[in-house]
Design a protein around this nucleic acid. Structure first.
Lengths: 319, 319
DNA sequence: GTGAAAGCGCTAACAA
DNA sequence: TTGTTAGCGCTTTCAC
């Protein structure tokens, strides 16, 4: 009956009708089917957030921020994991055509032309939390990695550390590439040469440990501890690295200072608490969600590219 | 056209028809609408996992396990967060009647009669990863907290620690209540009296620090450090506590041994690495997912109640 | 093996 | 203001 639908959607009806419907709904425990509804009205009132790895605490921060904005606007947020492969990301974006949600926030680890194409062709609005080329013409919210690296390097410099090594994640990823570029620039701008650079296999804790090990095998030929500071591309790598340092009897920050990136919950949980570059993951999440909502309202707006500026959260891992 | 549907669903068709459809699909980029499909067939091929707090690493482990089982069975997993309030959990369960998914795995932090009722009345099968009364008649997979506590206490005892304190989470939660009971039993079974017990406001890192602080204010009246070991109700509390210990100049494990629970990724990431009771979160996730799939196949089966046995992961936070 | 047609549960347009 | 009806996009009879 159409009157039920009207009452439930708050459209005009007699007081008596409203009451009659409410009683029936109560009695039968009736709940409208969202699939049928969305099939009819063309909207699901659900939004999807896709992240590469739920184990990475930076996504926790982002997720919370997105959830907040989105639920305040009356949407349900569903989170899915893509894994590290770009093909799975593409599959997910393509899959949005099945009508799972009204929009998508995706934070892709790797980007290729297929992914960009799938985003451009996507049935529903997509906002990228990360860096895609401007020519892609999609809404993006990204961090300023170079600026973040500058904060890290200059902080270390101010603390008298000049022999700086760098533990990056895979450079074929979006953040990996950005960090590599940013680190090189920041070092150059300060007239420094990196003591060593290693590339971890991914952005996880165990990869950080392994990268630490590799770092030392590279340095073994050098003078008595050729480094006094390490910058890691994210907090998980930084913490893995600190474990490797400890295993070698080195004290953070006395022997080696460590700076992470993301300023995730892990940074304050680690010991010593980790000085970390806050790349604004909460704000990026918030802005991405807002962009998505705006895009859903008006699909003709010109794509926006928002850059969130970093800050440095100084903790005990640097002197 | 019905033939398209047949081809796409692998029903018998001429080779020519198959090819014709495939070409058209390719050309138009056609993707079937899952809402319309599920409206017709009555299944969404989606499953929901609801957790209280995405920031708790124990859920990461569980999520991964559920995801693996579920996707192998051809289902899509969507994750939603409920928050700590039981009313939101109830709302989520009730909301499943809207047809979001074919089943639900929920790991409730707090359980009341409303929640049990909503689960019993739920339109789709629900598996509880946690403890609900047997009379509820629902599939459950739960940990054996008492046994886990026994492992923790006996391990400490074997290491010569007898002055044991306990940092629990809120006792009005399912895990909080189970831990409290388990701790009391385990201590009693070994003829020990707890040195002190505190109840954190929730199961988070900052709550662990505060609880540590409270612990010391309780102990100040006692002999020179009245305790030599602390058991925490989960890893986040344990890590928070360790920070508080460090802030007071105490060394783990030399001065105070610490045992956590959950054996999450955080346990190995923390420093020193945390000895932790593995309550089988991965296995619980796996079993819960399997139970859900089985229940979807056959809704007449008697409810099963699976208990996963704990093990102890010994690391450096105990001597 | 294929096309036509009904219908899943809802809402928007129309008529009363 | 309310009831009737069509149709969202799909699958599944049912004839052919």
């Amino acid at each position: 009956m159409a009157s039920v639908s009207r009452v439930l959607n708050g459209l005009p009806a007699t007081e008596e009708m409203v009451e009659r419907v409410q009683r029936a709904v109560e009695q039968l425990g009736y709940v409208p089917d969202s699939r049928a509804r969305s099939l009819k009205v063309g909207r699901t009132f659900q939004l999807t957030l896709a992240v590469a790895d739920v184990g990475n605490p930076v996504y926790v921060t982002m997720m919370r921020a997105v959830e907040e904005v989105v639920s305040a606007a009356g949407y349900r947020l569903v989170v899915t994991t893509t894994g590290p492969d770009v093909v799975d990301e593409v599959a997910l974006v393509r899959g949005m055509a099945r009508g799972y949600a009204d929009g998508l926030v995706i934070s892709p680890l790797r980007v290729d032309d297929d992914l960009i194409k799938s985003i451009q062709e996507c049935e529903v609005p997509v906002v990228v939390a990360g860096n895609v080329p401007a020519r892609a013409g999609v809404d993006t919210v990204r961090a300023n990695s170079p600026k973040g690296m500058l904060l890290a390097v200059e902080h270390l410099l101010a603390k008298g550390r000049r022999r700086i090594a760098f533990v990056n994640g895979p450079v074929d990823t979006v953040p990996g590439a950005a960090r590599a570029k940013g680190f090189a620039e920041a070092m150059k701008a300060n007239g420094l040469q990196p003591v060593a650079e290693v590339e971890a296999v991914d952005f996880t804790f165990p990869a950080g440990r392994e990268a630490g090990d590799e770092l030392f095998s590279k340095l073994d030929n050098r003078a008595p501890l050729g480094l006094d500071a390490v910058i890691a591309a994210n907090d998980l790598l930084a913490v893995g690295l600190m474990h490797e340092l400890a295993a070698r009897g080195l004290v953070v920050p006395d022997d080696v200072a460590v700076v992470g990136m993301d300023d995730s919950e892990l940074a304050e949980q680690s010991f010593p608490p980790l000085t970390s570059v806050n790349l604004g993951s909460a704000e990026r999440g918030r802005r991405a969600a807002e962009l998505l909502l705006a895009r859903i309202e008006d699909d003709t707006r010109a794509p926006r590219r928002i850059v969130v500026q970093p800050t440095l959260s100084v903790r005990k891992s640097t002197p």
